[in-house]
Simulated assay, not measured.
Amino acid sequence: MEHKDYSPWRVKSNSSLKLRDIETLPSPKDLPTDEAWQSSMHKLGDKLNKLQGTLHAGKSKGLLLVLQGMDTAGKDGVIRSVFTHISPLGVRAEAFGAPSDLEKSHDFLWRIHQKTPVLGEMVIFNRSHYEDVLVTRVRGWVKKDTCEKRFDDIKHFESLLSDSGITVLKCYLHISKAEQKKRLQARLDDPHKHWKLQPSDFEDRQLWPKFAEAYEDALSATSTPDAPWYVVPADSKPYRDLFVADLLVQTLESMKLEMPKPLFDLSKVKLD
């Protein structure tokens, strides 16, 4: 299958990003049928599994995938769908909630740095260090100028990761307020999903414009050549998952991964 060009969804550094100008749902012709989705995800899953195996064996590079988005945008869903057929060896998902008292006594990146990939590892962040320039700003816990200083800290942090052999890929799952309403209602209607609901889900919905502005500033300020942001249309779950899977495969292929050389001369091995 041919790869798609995702450059139109890549956020330009220090641009005047307006999320309202980016569609949350692609045109009908771009929406995959169930059959096409299953076929494409199977092919991408095979590629991703092989690439991840090479990454794990080589232990010379690593990859960090950052997933951010409003509540119900599908961070958990992406992880389940995209990584279903991947060997668990060398793959790890980390979720970041409210910081503990110990974590709050350190700088805001302290708890994050401990969870970043080692060489040979792929790590997925379900929420991330960006919470400290998003929810903290919207809730008024830190001032806007503090967030702007943190943008610089984040860029230096991600540059350090890149210099250390870690490729950083960041995806903002772009969901509409109308689609979020449908997904929240579905959770309210399903007792098996009540555990997912928190008061903040409904409080944050009332602060939608402020969150949109905070995301626009954060994505624009921190999308760099070493750690780009992509805005992923997320109203369609199948389209969202294909987007992230294909983008991830392209990113891994661009890393030019190689299998390590054998530890000894295999030509001398003779099996009885």
Results as ranks from 00 to 15, higher is better:
3 H>Q: 06
6 Y>C: 08
6 Y>Q: 04
13 S>A: 13
15 S>G: 13
18 K>T: 08
21 D>N: 12
22 I>D: 01
23 E>V: 11
25 L>C: 09
26 P>L: 13
31 L>Y: 08
31 L>W: 04
32 P>K: 12
33 T>I: 08
39 S>Y: 03
43 K>V: 04
49 N>W: 03
57 A>C: 01
62 G>W: 02
70 M>G: 02
72 T>I: 11
74 G>I: 03
75 K>C: 07
78 V>C: 09
81 S>L: 01
81 S>M: 01
85 H>D: 15
85 H>Q: 12
86 I>F: 04
90 G>P: 05
92 R>M: 02
97 G>R: 13
98 A>M: 09
102 L>E: 14
106 H>M: 07
106 H>A: 03
109 L>V: 09
112 I>S: 01
118 V>A: 15
119 L>R: 15
129 H>R: 10
130 Y>S: 10
136 T>G: 00
136 T>I: 03
137 R>G: 07
139 R>I: 00
142 V>C: 13
148 E>L: 13
150 R>Q: 07
150 R>K: 06
153 D>C: 06
153 D>I: 03
157 F>S: 04
157 F>Y: 14
172 Y>F: 15
174 H>Y: 08
175 I>H: 05
178 A>M: 08
181 K>G: 06
192 H>T: 15
196 K>H: 09
198 Q>Y: 01
211 F>V: 04
220 S>F: 06
228 P>F: 07
232 V>W: 01
233 P>A: 12
234 A>D: 06
234 A>V: 08
237 K>Y: 04
238 P>G: 06
239 Y>L: 02
241 D>M: 03
241 D>R: 00
248 L>W: 13
249 V>A: 07
251 T>D: 01
258 E>H: 13
265 D>T: 06
267 S>Q: 11
269 V>N: 04
272 D>P: 15
